[in-house]
Amino acid sequence: MQLIKDGAIIADEWTALADEDALPATGPVIVSLDRFKLEQNLLLARKDKLGIRLKSGEAPEQIKDFLDRLALVALEFPAYRNGRAFSYAYLLRERYGFKGELRAVGAVLRDQFNYLARVGFDAYEVRDNITPEIFKLSVSAFEHDYQPSADSKPAVLSLRQRRLAAQKAT
């Protein structure tokens, strides 16, 4: 596995801690929601960055009060047909205003990157055969989108309204 962030392959600075792993003294760690609940004070007291990993079924509402203390939220895709985390991502970005890294982990396919990027993911754990070129091809498959989402692209609706306004102006 490798990490693509903002379209490039980068070294992963984060340590994904299993629940039984000892908490390292320093360095950014990603913990499960269960562990976060158990060791919340300890984890928040550390100086280094903290990330939480949510399983499918663990709605982000449970961590919304801590989002300003989190630098990363990882959302699990247990199977590529399981699209629950698309809603989680959208809510984290659009409703709870999460600005940190939103990382897709688990079963995602290259033909899903465009959907993932649109709901607000900016980092992806991917198979080793995914290159930045492939990633770019996937996310740029469609220039415009019909509906607004968590990306910054204007939806077709807004583009049509702009065109209409321009027509009126001339």
Partner: peptide, 13 residues
Amino acid sequence: RQWSTFHPEFSFL
């Protein structure tokens, strides 16, 4: 039709 086409959140229901 337009809203639902390639809806990023609702394509893997």
